[in-house]
Design a protein around this nucleic acid. Structure first.
Length: 154
DNA sequence: GCCAACGTTGGC
DNA sequence: GCCAACGTTGGC
């Protein structure tokens, strides 16, 4: 059974528009075990939301899909790089990533504020106080609700 | 820019 | 194993 996911990114660092241009991108640089574990649960073809964070109006802006299941995050091995982790080796990689592919934009972005207003979405990890996970699951019913919200302007 | 909340680190 | 200190995230 396929699951749904949310991929969080600061658009200044990597935007949905950039993914449109790239087509597919490795979701590298995740250095949180819970987020990594979610990526290891992903299956090829799983759909997800691309969410823009740390901007005036944080929002889910587009649909993506998992194009490649989890494999070692090469940035952890890049000595001197921003994401280098000396504990990670070729033989025993610590950090994993998936490839994420562009699918389509939401007709209308679903802002964080809109999600907060919808009580049916109250259980989403994204909306929990102090929650910072950059990769998180979305339940089937939440997925449906968000896509329905995206069909009409906020 | 502020600051609450979180995960990680490291001394003990 | 505890927990204080620290750095980071991310909404506001």
């Amino acid at each position: 059974m396929s699951r749904h996911w949310l991929f969080k990114s600061e658009p200044d660092a990597y935007s949905f528009e950039q993914l449109r241009i790239d087509g597919t991108t490795p979701w590298s640089g995740v250095r949180n075990y819970q987020a990594r574990n979610f990526m290891m649960e992903m299956k090829a073809g799983d759909l997800g939301l691309f969410y823009h964070s740390s901007i005036p109006e944080p929002a889910a802006v587009g649909i993506v899909k998992v194009a490649r299941t989890a494999y070692p995050d090469f940035t952890a091995l890049e000595r001197g790089g921003e994401y280098y982790d000396p504990r990670s080796t070729d033989a025993k990689p610590i950090w994993m990533m998936v490839d994420v592919a562009y699918v389509e934009p939401l007709a209308h972005p679903v802002t964080l504020a809109r999600m907060r207003e919808d009580r049916r979405l109250a259980a989403m990890p994204l909306l929990q106080r102090g929650q910072r996970l950059s990769v998180q699951p979305i339940e089937a019913h939440e997925w449906k609700i968000i896509l329905a919200l995206a069909k009409k302007p906020g």
